[in-house]
Design a binder for these strands. Structure first.
Lengths: 208, 208
DNA sequence: TTTAAAACAGGACGATTGACCTGTTAGGAG
DNA sequence: CTCCTAACAGGTCAATCGTCCTGTTTTAAA
């Protein structure tokens, strides 16, 4: 109505909406989250919401492409480049995630997996967008295993299927942790995964 | 209204409702499935539905306790008793599931995992019921590994955490298969899991 | 300064949700 | 047979869903 100090900030409003939606989608699920709830939490009017995201699907797509994709890249792909080999990176990632989960008290699960589980059956376009993220994740891990094989750090491994296995272990352990509200599954899976990778790797950390 | 050949069949009606709900919950998700949809698919009136299940939560609980629990027991726990050791059972189970999925054309995912993912954050009672199923599954697998250890078939394994790993691999691979609509993740995970278990087991199938 | 388009406000829309109501019928106990 | 309760029919309820509308204000280009 009356023009109190309103300032147009399309990028900021859009960012607030996507951030709020990302949180809600990951914690409660895409279907269980209403547009009204997002509008209220993000302090955005219906008009602004409709302007930026005419439909819920568009918001879901934006969350997947702008946030879920980034989350996977940041927590799983980038650490691969900063570690000497795949096992070191994987153990570091598991450790970080367990460390972040422990004090929080509740386990909300893997963003990518959470989105994929309740969106995949209903929206082919969103499913494909999530599929791309899975593919990038698998490819990055696979490339790291391949590099370890080429550099002689690892032997007798099949990079592609081993990468799939690692993703499955992480996704499954996170799903269990969410269902049981206990990080135990992540802790146990981390140890087992480290042990089985150690059999294929000759570590240089200690003399041997 | 007019008393056309109606017959009271409380057990049958209840079974039809639970069966229909189980299918819908697994394929579309608990939240995404409406009570009206279940009523129509099961050909049940609103009055009958309200009589048997006063609230959606009660139906969800019944599906978990009567169907999901049974599905896990039948596909994962009972085969353990019919196989010589855990690796044989696990490979058989993966093979059966992949074989059933291949001609179907679509992957709807693991019933237990599907239910857990979208129900856990919203209903503590249903989450605990699912938690019990996870616990029974983990315990059965753990006991089989323990038996293999005692009988000398396996060595250098930790039954409890290894059982958790197997469940994580299966759940995660199934989640990937559902998200990507491709059984590839299950096939690859099966092979990797068989290979890593073989390292801990001395097989008696072939001479050696 | 004029102007057109983007950005935003606030509310209303029909459809659908889960829950529940009153009334009627079936079927076993007495 | 009578009677009573579980079983069932059919419809209604407020609440909430996602979407869209009209109108106003900001903003940058001309």
């Amino acid at each position: 109505m009356i023009g109190n100090g309103r300032t147009n900030d399309p990028q900021g409003v859009r960012r607030r909406i996507v951030d709020t939606a990302y949180d809600a989608f990951v914690k409660q699920g895409y279907i269980a989250t209403g547009m009204l709830e997002i509008r209220e939490k993000a302090s955005v009017s219906g008009g602004a919401m409709a302007h930026h995201f005419p439909a819920k699907r568009a918001l879901g797509l934006a969350v997947i492409r702008d946030r879920v994709s980034h989350a996977v890249r940041q927590t799983w792909i980038e650490p691969l480049d900063r570690c000497v080999d795949a096992p070191a990176a994987i153990d570091l990632i598991f450790g970080d995630i367990i460390g972040e989960l422990a004090p929080k008290g509740s386990v909300s699960g893997c963003p990518l997996n959470n989105m994929a589980m309740d969106v995949s059956p209903h929206d082919p376009e969103m499913r494909l967008a999530l599929d791309d993220i899975f593919a990038a994740w698998q490819e990055a891990l696979s490339a790291k295993f391949q590099a370890d094989l080429a550099s002689g750090r690892a032997s007798n491994i099949q990079p592609s299927s081993l990468a799939t296995l690692v993703i499955a272990i992480y996704s499954g352990a996170m799903a269990m942790a969410k269902a049981r509200q206990d990080v135990g599954a992540l802790v146990e899976s981390r140890a087992e995964l480290a042990a089985l990778l150690a059999l294929k790797y000759r570590r240089v950390t200690s003399a041997g």
